[in-house]
Design a binder for these strands. Structure first.
Lengths: 215, 215
DNA sequence: GCACCAAGTAAACGAGCGTTCAGGGGCTTC
DNA sequence: GAAGCCCCTGAACGCTCGTTTACTTGGTGC
């Protein structure tokens, strides 16, 4: 993981990981462990066996590298959520469960990536950050949509206060809960990813007052 | 917590905020807005109308300043939680509701402080961070205790998987949910602090399968 | 009046940052 | 074998950081 091939790769038959991918991976790991502002360009490149200057053959700046990493993670998450919901039939309860399961499994499995995407977003400049926030809102709105449909059909009964419901607040609460699994979940513990997903799906269904069904 | 009044307070009639408090407040604000590593000592001191060097009359280092801030916030939170639970009678449902209400109200009202305490902890060095983590575990264990008592008495029925319960995981899920209100709640919105607290308490009770009662 | 001392200033320190750039190897293409 | 292109190196740039230092100030106790 330190020095790789300082001068010449000598082009062996088996493909080495291209440098741009090595940089992405090294940056991911270090941002996750220590945080964007304290990880230096020198750190990242040393981990790839390159020198600092080489970064700028692949990325315009350190900021662009971070955005590249976060944006790809976020886009993949959005894609997975949409896919899970679309493939879960018509019942809002099934849709909600599928959404939560996918979301939690993803945040257990790709803890590092999730952690970076959620913690380091603040270091991006304005235009880069807007891009990410749009995707987050989109994911929240998927959830709001599911809840709204469930309320319409009478299978959900989320808490109301003063006779008013706030599906956005409920959605944010559920998402916060699921997102931050990545902050403390450790693989190999008592509960596996799938069990965590099951636990969270059950809690979500209960929270929104889902009428029991033969799931 | 550092130097207070070593010889004489000089006691003028109208109290000015002592500089050490002004520094704390300015640091709080700026850490919250921009994050510990990018806020400079110069920034903090300029906000107090002082020069950089003056910081070191009150704190040993920038790191110690952060720890001072986080530790006092965290200690106050722990105290509030204990007090809320102790004053909520004997029913685990009432205890859980009281805990969540206090926790959520606190995280709505002191968003800035909560945000710093939760986001910037990673910049502390090892011994400082251990101190904070102990307090967090203590808070989690209050919650675990409430749930355990509730299960014993048959008033809670948290989700189980493969016949096993994991009260720690459930507690972490509830805490994550409540903690991160501070990341998006804005005062003056549709829901006030008390209403948020009510919403979250209701969701928590539902999540753990509380038997309905005449609250 | 005078020594004392906390608390402030202003300048300087060395280190480390992100970024740039001239130079130079090893490909591929003629 | 010459040309052109990637991609790298290694030194340097200008800047800012946290911290230290020497010095000044103003209130207090004897």
């Amino acid at each position: 993981m330190t020095k790789r091939k300082p001068v010449a790769p000598a082009a062996p038959e088996r493909e080495q990981r291209p440098p741009v991918e090595a940089i992405r991976a090294a940056a991911f790991k270090q941002f996750a462990e220590r945080g964007y502002p304290v990880v230096t360009v020198r750190d990242i490149m040393k981990a790839c066996g390159l020198t600092q200057g080489a970064l700028y053959n692949h990325f315009k700046s350190k900021d662009e590298l971070l955005h590249d990493i976060i944006a790809s993670t976020q886009a993949e998450l959005e894609r997975l959520c949409l896919q899970a919901v679309a493939g879960a039939g018509d019942d809002p309860r099934a849709k909600l469960a599928a959404f939560v399961r996918v979301y939690v499994v993803r945040h257990c499995r790709l803890r590092v990536e999730a952690l970076v995407a959620n913690r380091e977003i603040g270091w991006l400049d304005a235009e880069h950050v807007a891009d990410i926030r749009r995707s987050r809102r989109a994911i929240r709105d998927i959830l709001v949509g599911i809840l709204a449909r469930g309320v319409e059909r009478g299978v959900f009964n989320p808490p109301q206060l003063d006779g008013r419901r706030d599906l956005k607040a409920v959605s944010m609460a559920l998402l916060d809960q699921c997102t931050h699994v990545s902050m403390w979940y450790l693989p190999g513990g008592r509960l596996g990813e799938e069990q965590m997903a099951g636990l969270y799906a059950e809690m979500a269904l209960r929270s929104v007052g889902a009428k029991t069904q033969t799931t």
